[in-house]
């Protein structure tokens, strides 16, 4: 009796959140799967079942595969770049004796930028007529005339990648920094007495303490970057010539540009399936790290 009233009381606390999850997440996802088998159009309420036709035409379309591989390149490049820069910055911050608070504050600034301001500020800095960087490079005769960083097919992807690394590295930095603080000092001292060099100390003491946080960050950021629509959309619009069109941008164009919501659903459902499989594998790996804890 006691136990039962306990659980009933608890229900009132969690019920509203559960309703939100069912109504705003579960139901829409199921409904997306449903619509991916229809020819639903943005402007018409009448639709028909088309079986697996959307999936077949998506999987046979060049645009889809181009967007898919662009997404993979974009995500892998961004997240690995963010990890490398964030990790090095965290290690440097941990090492310096003074001003680390000041540096940390300066380094965390990009993370506070909303996507629209990231896009505006970099499009302005890189503007081929009035921008600071192209004019600077011209003035020092490093380039012959102003480079258009965001219109040049050779450069645009790398430049967008650099902007995303600029934006995301601080999150890696502050989280890795917090994990570095948990490494017991005396382990380093003991290792130094035993004659371990810097590389060995890093590999055998630092890495085991931070790898779980890094693993989680990698998973979370991979999902986020893979799903993110606005950053690239606002910086490049997916162009030039579709060179920076990722899956979310491709789905947006299909659903709201071409008004084929059914087809767009098929694209996003494939996107979700890919993510679920990738994440399941990644979580398996990280949980293995958890079972062999840092000593």
């Amino acid at each position: 009796m006691q136990l039962r009233s306990h659980t009933t009381a608890g229900l009132w606390f969690v019920l509203p959140a559960m309703l939100v999850v069912v109504a705003l997440l579960l139901y829409p996802v199921l409904s997306s799967i449903f619509f991916s088998f229809t020819n639903r159009n943005l402007l018409k309420t009448v639709y028909a079942f088309v079986g697996a036709q959307n999936f077949l035409s998506v999987l046979n379309s060049r645009d889809f595969w181009n967007a898919f591989f662009t997404s993979i390149k974009w995500t892998a490049g961004s997240v690995l770049g963010q990890l490398v820069v964030g990790l090095l910055a965290a290690l440097a911050l941990e090492r310096v004796p003074r001003f680390s608070g000041l540096y940390r504050t300066l380094l965390v600034i990009p993370w506070a930028f909303p996507a629209i301001v990231i896009a505006f500020s970099w499009r302005w800095i890189l503007n081929d007529v009035y921008g600071f960087l192209p004019n600077l490079l011209s003035a020092f005769r490093i380039t012959n005339g102003n480079v258009s960083f965001l219109a040049d097919p050779q450069l645009v992807f790398a430049v967008a990648l650099a902007i995303n690394i600029w934006f995301g590295a601080p999150l890696f930095m502050i989280n890795i920094l917090a994990a570095l603080k948990t490494v017991p000092r005396d382990q380093y001292e003991a290792a130094m007495i035993d004659g371990a060099n810097l590389g060995q100390r890093f590999w055998y003491i630092t890495v085991p303490h931070v790898r779980r946080v890094i693993g989680l960050l990698l998973i979370l950021r991979t999902i986020w970057v893979f799903n993110n629509f606005e950053l690239l959309f606002l910086i490049t619009g997916g162009g030039p010539a579709g060179l920076t069109t990722t899956l979310p941008i491709h789905a947006y164009r299909t659903g709201w540009g071409l008004r084929q919501l059914g087809m767009a659903s098929a694209i996003t459902v494939l996107l979700l399936i890919f993510l679920l499989v990738a994440a399941a594998l990644a979580f398996k790996l990280v949980s293995r790290w958890e079972r062999t804890p840092a000593r």
Partner: peptide, 18 residues
């Protein structure tokens, strides 16, 4: 709950629009 983080916003956008 946190695994719903994986749902692409663009996927939710279709049913939300409808």
């Amino acid at each position: 709950l946190i695994s719903t983080y994986m749902f692409p916003p663009i996927l939710l956008a279709v049913p939300y629009t409808i």
